[in-house]
Design a protein around this nucleic acid. Structure first.
Lengths: 340, 340
DNA sequence: CTGAAAGCGCTTACAG
DNA sequence: CTGAAAGCGCTTACAG
């Protein structure tokens, strides 16, 4: 099924058929006479004509392809963000290539080259490292891109207002009277962990309760990382009265570590996560957490990239977080839960 | 950077350059004289030449593109399988388009058409419905494809031996003396849930303990679905002594429902999941489950598709499951856990 | 060993 | 309103 075949059957030239089928809304009228337009559209429909994207890309030097790089898709947070990207991309007639970089610089480089070799029009990075010059290099090469989830100085991004989210958690714990708290803070190169921890620590400092350095530990963003981080917190002194783990999966790992130490979540220690993944509400002791608009972040990231591709300006966009209080930190909800 | 530019600088014809740069290993020698080969390779290297994939696809009628359809990437099981697919694809010089179909037939159709419009060479379906003729239609159109995770009559697939896995769980629970058990069985159209439940029920029947129909309930494959399914089990009679939830995320939801009913997992009721996602081991009460080789399944699925594309035969491949016993079903491990 | 030609399927300025 | 031409960047059988 090609334009040529349609043209032949209709006794028209291929260029006429092309104009009719792919004229932009505004110039649809000048493509051909209306009887011709009718005939062409009808036949194309009957034959189920599909434009060949490779021919089009070759000719127009535009692929309608987007590269998406994430640390790992098996992290539900990134997978959900990607679902938003993919959904919005489909609505814009774009297709996406996703690849895992596992937060390893060489893989970030290799995967970037790979999608560029595939001639993507632009890239969405979900794996920005705040301490690396890699994105500056990419920008210097003139590759259009935006960041999602994590931000980096000088590049457009769509992220949750992580700093504010961290403050909200602190506010909540301060209201409950917690004075000795600890943070499992995620990877040191991820703006998410940095800003969530920053907002949290700043709010406690403002309350006259600065958090000592040994109460803040770095960690991987998965359940094992959360467990390991929590173990280090517990090894460094008496258990704090509250623990902020900067992502839900890490918080789940923390639950395991706490239970190994005989600490009852919601009674002996309050735990707060971040993201409000669907798991948080379903846990045996439901997890207090901060809802971040992951799906929406993906959608907006894609739209921002489209704007960049159209030559528009793009600033960093902060999405509003929302505290969701559950039994893991709220004594009232906890005792309601136990009334069975 | 095009072949033409390299040819010009070297005073060669573009066809010679093409032959040198892209000759297959076997015919590499006959591409040009070795000094010419040297010169071409060197310059291509210096200039960082990258073949234009659109031009190549247009010319060769092969895109080196693979479509991957999954219910949803935010399901960690599918995300992990996809990671295997993507990894193996990269090794084979293939790129992938992934799309979510949310297990909705219209979306399965729409996304299939979408990847086909992108001219993929073949498709990997992770969302097969055993009660639908859709895959037969796709096969009838001559589209090469393989299934992963879920199987369907008459189509090549790579899946876990779910029936065996179900039997293993039954065996384990029978050894522990459980006689009154229930199953949260997943979606009725998914071979995973069907076969895991089938193996489990068969083994109990063989032991002279057939499971009554009301003890087997269908459910969605996420935490909320597991919770809802468990609620229905508990509503339909006295609590069973053991509960088999056919996937880990569902099992996590079950934990929530059980705790709402005041049932202590590992004491009042045994719980077993399926997949051994990284979360299972980290839960407050670690979850007994069946390890299924998700990543490997993805890798093998891609390789099987490559074989199909090369015109080879392809049968269904069953991967071996492995029972992982933890405290949620094992009284010994449970009491060891409590010794703090 | 290397070149020349044809053609994959499209788009787009131009001519009539 | 429609056609004809050129060309995007490659590959591949063929000729010399």
């Amino acid at each position: 099924m090609t334009l040529q075949m349609i043209a032949d059957r209709l006794g028209l030239h291929v260029s006429t058929v092309s104009r009719v089928l792919h004229a932009k809304p505004g110039e649809g009228l000048r493509a051909a006479s209306s009887p011709t337009v009718e005939r062409v559209r009808k036949l194309a429909d009957e034959l189920g004509y599909q434009r060949n994207p490779h021919a089009m890309s070759l000719r127009t030097q535009r692929s309608n392809l987007i590269g998406v790089l994430v640390p790992r898709l098996s992290d539900m947070v990134l997978a959900t963000i990607y679902e938003g990207v993919e959904e919005a991309a489909a609505e814009h007639g774009l297709s996406t290539f996703v690849a895992n970089t596992r937060d390893i610089p060489e893989e970030q480089r290799a995967r970037t080259e790979m999608v560029l070799a595939r001639r993507v029009d632009g890239i969405i990075f979900g794996d920005a490292h705040s301490d690396s010059g890699f994105l500056d290099e990419v920008a210097a090469r003139g590759v259009p891109f935006v960041l999602v989830n994590r931000q980096a100085e000088g590049h457009p991004s769509v992220v949750c207002d992580d700093y504010l989210g961290g403050r909200m958690v602190a506010e909540h714990l301060l209201e409950l009277g917690h004075e000795d708290v600890a943070v499992v803070a995620g990877e040191p190169y991820a703006s998410t962990g940095i800003n969530r921890t920053g907002g949290f620590a700043d709010r406690f400092r403002e309350a006259g309760l600065p958090i000592p350095a040994h109460r803040i530990v770095h960690s991987r963003f998965d359940a094992r990382g959360g467990r390991a981080g929590t173990e280090r917190v517990l090894a460094s002194g008496p258990p704090p009265s509250a623990l902020f783990v900067v992502n839900d999966f890490g918080a789940i790992g923390a639950l395991g570590a706490l239970r190994d130490h005989g600490l009852r979540v919601g009674v002996d220690i309050a735990v707060v996560g971040f993201n409000d993944t669907p798991l948080a509400a379903e846990l045996p002791v439901p997890l207090t957490t901060v809802r971040s608009p992951m799906h929406e972040m993906g959608r907006r990231g894609l739209r921002k990239l489209v704007r960049v591709l159209e030559g528009g300006r793009a600033e960093t966009e902060l999405l509003r977080p929302e505290l969701v209080v559950r039994a893991s930190s709220d004594p009232q909800q906890y005792s309601a839960l136990m009334k069975h």
